[in-house]
């Protein structure tokens, strides 16, 4: 039986192996992904983002436990940063999800960013597909702890929860452009701490400034550890999913996602073609020239582009 079929039957080992293949050697994983694509599109993808230590893992864990009671099957992609120096990583999100480990209807995968910026890994979208095809109803993507502008999660999610906490003081001001704009629901976690109401007021003020007709995200107070506010949060998520499906937002987001996916894959191919046709040596030669001030990078790119075009038009059929 091939890998794709085993994935669709929910074979845990096969899913785990395919995710590894996607992470390590995307070209080879594509065959299985092609087969699986037709079985995708059923799952709702929920992005969970926020600063480090705000409780993303705990909220993910509690929401999952909550919806397991109503029979939802859950996939979780938990992303932590990889070292830019060694490529190594400590993937620690499972510490908060211990009770989920033996639930056969929950599949959790911890992922390192492996040099990708934006709060996700390059493989995230493909992993979403694999979990979708294996029959998960809800897929949570837990981003790395984010600061201001790691907003890539909007490109792979149907809806976004932005988890914040009181006591970050003026940091909240700095958060306001970028990350604060992407939340469909604001979760004020650790709401038993001082400053929770002040934070809510600040978020409300910011939302007011969005102006007429712009989105007006709800704000939910939670204490993840104590399981407080989780039921209400899920209710709000469900309500929002219905709303966004009715007003066409989910469709629009998925449309953007597919568009981006096609373009990104195209770009990857393009990059590979560059190295096939132009080669590392030519690139290095240009680098040397620019460093010695014999050429500037703009002219170097023009020259390489001309060479690239010529190669394509010459032997086009062989390449494509």
């Amino acid at each position: 039986m091939d890998l794709g079929t085993r994935v669709r039957q929910g074979d845990t080992r096969a899913v785990a192996k395919l995710i590894t293949l996607v992470e390590n050697d995307f070209q080879h994983a594509q065959k299985a992904l092609k087969d699986l694509h037709q079985y995708c599109g059923k799952a709702i993808v929920i992005g969970i983002t926020g600063p480090p230590g705000s409780g993303k893992s705990t909220i993910t864990d509690r929401l999952t436990q909550h919806i397991r009671k109503i029979g939802k099957k859950v996939g979780i992609i938990a992303i932590d940063p990889s070292s830019p120096f060694t490529g190594g990583a400590i993937l620690g999100d499972r510490i908060r999800m211990q009770d989920l480990a033996t639930d056969q209807e929950v599949f959790i995968r911890s992922i390192g960013t492996r040099g990708h910026l934006g709060g996700l890994s390059r493989s995230t979208q493909a992993i979403v597909k694999i979990m979708d095809a294996m029959g998960k109803d809800i897929i949570f993507i837990e981003t790395v702890g984010v600061g201001q502008s790691e907003i890539e999660v909007i490109k792979v999610s149907d809806i976004i929860l932005l988890v914040t906490i009181p006591g970050m003081g003026d940091d909240i001001q700095a958060l306001k452009a970028g990350i604060m704009e992407i939340g469909d629901i604001f979760v004020v976690n650790k709401a038993d701490r001082d400053g929770a109401d002040k934070l809510i007021t600040e978020i409300e003020m910011m939302i007011h400034l969005n102006g007429e007709g712009k989105k007006n995200p709800p704000i939910i107070k939670t204490v993840g550890i104590e399981n407080i506010g989780i039921a209400q949060l899920w209710k709000e998520i469900e309500r929002l999913i219905v709303e966004l499906e009715e007003n066409g937002q989910i469709y629009q987001r998925r449309r953007n996602r597919v568009r981006k996916e096609i373009f990104d894959l195209f770009q990857e191919n393009w990059k590979d073609m560059f190295f096939q046709l132009i080669g590392e040596a030519n690139l290095e030669r240009e680098v040397e020239k620019v460093l010695k001030q014999e050429n500037d990078p703009y002219c170097a790119v023009e020259k390489l582009t001309e060479k690239f075009k010529k190669k394509i038009f010459q032997g086009g059929n062989n390449i494509v």
């Binding site: 845990t12 190594g88 990583a89 993937l91 510490i95 033996t102 959790i108």
Partner: peptide, 23 residues
């Protein structure tokens, strides 16, 4: 340079094995 999945204290054998497989 390795990716280390750390799962915290007090794991049962079942949790460890299931985690190892999923990861």
């Amino acid at each position: 340079g390795m990716e280390v999945i750390y799962t915290g204290l007090r794991q049962t054998p079942e949790q460890i094995v299931e985690t190892a497989i999923q990861e």
